[in-house]
């Protein structure tokens, strides 16, 4: 049994969970390649004009997997409870994919998370296992193995990041961006690489103790509805004292980010913030100008602070 997983969108958030689960069930995983120009092009062809770059890319990845596997995994996530919603793109993903590719013999494996209708992650994975004709015991075991693996990896990532945060002599830049943007080869990687070329240490907002982050976010905005944005907002609070600058990176025209980033710029004080909005355009001179000048500023600022400390 081959399970196709599009290497886009929620894959970057749940990869350890998904990969371990299917592996434990004895399924083969077919992963679409890192985003390349062809995938972006295919995605744009299938997508609605007005949807965001990330969701266009997602369609490109799904398209790549058609006829290469038995099932394609397309989860649907509506909410994690009252006041805990996600972008409607994730709620619509299943239907959008099923409709867009309806003439192309696509077989979707889906799971549904909708806490307000009592559809929890555990239930969702049980149903998914059943669809694959696995026994109940096997599915439960695979799910808990997957949860354990996810936890282990998260802690490992967190530990690595804590080490980076301790490095005081270098410039540290916090990138606040959804996992599917920052880890994407086409969208986020050029930015990360360019910042590294400018000798910056990258702190990733997506890597944070999630519960703690959400608690912090609540203090900044008690009514913010989007769960994934809450995690990122809280990460700013957790890391802001240890970094030299903050880069907000989102894909055009992301709805939740457009509102949340606006709030961040107004409310987070004391650290230079750069707001980067990425689209399909490929000329990167504009992007480089913004990043280079941003790094110049935080470098100068750090030097001045260091000098003052030396004097006193």
């Amino acid at each position: 049994m081959k399970i196709g997983i599009p290497r886009a969108f929620l894959y970057y958030k749940y990869r350890y969970l998904w990969e371990t689960f299917f592996h434990e069930l004895g399924c083969e995983i077919v992963l679409s390649p890192e985003t390349n120009r062809q995938i972006v092009k295919d995605g744009i062809n299938y997508a609605m004009d007005e949807s965001c770059l990330s969701s266009k890319i997602y369609l490109g990845h799904v398209h790549y997997l058609i006829d290469k596997c038995d099932y394609i995994l397309v989860p649907r996530i509506a909410n994690f409870g009252l006041g805990e919603v996600v972008c409607t793109k994730f709620q619509a993903a299943y239907d959008v994919i099923a409709n867009t590719f309806r003439d192309q013999n696509i077989k979707i494996l889906n799971y549904n998370i909708d806490h307000r209708k009592k559809q929890t992650e555990f239930k969702a994975f049980m149903k998914m296992g059943k669809e694959l004709n696995k026994r109940k015991f096997e599915i439960i075991r695979a799910y808990f193995m997957a949860k354990q693996a996810e936890k282990t990896y998260f802690q490992l990532e967190l530990k690595k990041q804590q080490e980076l945060l301790k490095r005081d002599s270098e410039l540290k830049v916090l990138i606040v961006s959804h996992a599917y943007n920052i880890y994407d080869k086409f969208v986020g990687e050029p930015i990360v690489k360019y910042l590294e070329k400018l000798d910056c240490i990258i702190i990733i907002g997506e890597i944070s103790p999630k519960q703690e982050a959400k608690q912090e976010a609540k203090e900044m905005s008690p009514t913010l509805p989007w769960t994934y944005n809450k995690e990122l907002l809280g990460a700013i609070k957790l890391y802001q004292k240890q970094v030299d600058g903050i880069v907000l990176m989102s894909s055009f025209p992301c709805g939740p980010d457009s509102l949340v980033n606006e709030m961040i710029i107004r409310k987070v004080k004391g650290k230079p913030i750069l707001n980067l909005v990425l689209d399909e355009q490929e000329g990167n001179a504009g992007m480089e100008t913004r990043l280079e000048s941003f790094v110049d500023i935080i470098k100068l600022k750090k030097d001045v602070v260091n000098e003052k400390q030396k004097e006193s």
């Binding site: 689209d279 500023i297 100068l300």
Partner: peptide
């Protein structure tokens, strides 16, 4: 501030 750039913003693309 004091002859040093402390903050800036640029239009999006």
């Amino acid at each position: 501030e004091d002859g040093i750039v402390v903050d800036y913003a640029m239009n999006t693309l």
